[in-house]
């Protein structure tokens, strides 16, 4: 990685995050059926994303977005599980971790466990529109790299939405 990520001024991050979320849900996929959003704080939201299996069965997943480094860097992005206490990372083998083929038509990988640059082992939604991609020893080309003049959280959510459609998406992993 060329540059070490630096946290965005929280007021700037929150204002930009709110503006881009509003735009995402105003038109396109985000305005469609099955989508929803629950803001946890000014820098964190959980998005409900619809999914469709090859046989037409409809599911949905929750993806948490965090804007600590946004918009200079992509949102921190993870599948999460609803619990009585709030939200926790979704795990492979659960209802909230999707089984899919990693072939949505663009380079993508969903890893149940991945080694991060700081030594952590954690789930990784691996493509160039998540923050985690840049702190896990990946080197995108200039055209692939997150560019805040060309990308917003819309890019992140729209790609994940495509992943969760048949034929790439299969069913919940548990």
């Amino acid at each position: 990685m060329i540059h070490e990520p630096v946290r965005t001024d929280p007021e700037v991050a929150a204002a930009t995050f709110a503006d881009h979320l509003q735009k995402f849900f105003a038109s396109g996929r985000g305005a469609g059926p099955g989508w929803g959003r629950k803001d946890l704080d000014e820098l964190t939201t959980v998005v409900r994303i619809p999914a469709r299996r090859p046989d037409g069965t409809e599911d949905f997943y929750f993806v948490e977005l965090r804007a600590d480094y946004y918009p200079t860097w992509p949102p921190m992005t993870s599948f999460v599980t609803p619990t009585e206490e709030g939200w926790e990372l979704a795990r492979d083998g659960s209802r909230w971790w999707p089984l899919q083929s990693n072939s949505p038509g663009f380079p993508f990988g969903l890893h149940a466990t991945y080694g991060f640059s700081d030594g952590r082992q954690a789930p990784l939604i691996c493509f160039s529109h998540t923050f985690e991609f840049y702190v896990s020893d990946h080197n995108p080309t200039d055209d692939e790299r997150w560019d805040p003049t060309r990308h917003t959280l819309s890019a992140t959510l729209n790609r994940i939405a495509k992943v969760l459609q048949a034929p790439n998406y299969l069913e919940p992993s548990g």
């Binding site: 663009f106 990988g109 493509f127 160039s128 991609f133 990946h138 055209d143 692939e144």
Partner: peptide, 10 residues
């Protein structure tokens, strides 16, 4: 239609 540019990942 929905347009998007190139992404990296694996």
């Amino acid at each position: 239609w929905g347009w998007s540019g190139e992404t990296g990942g694996a």
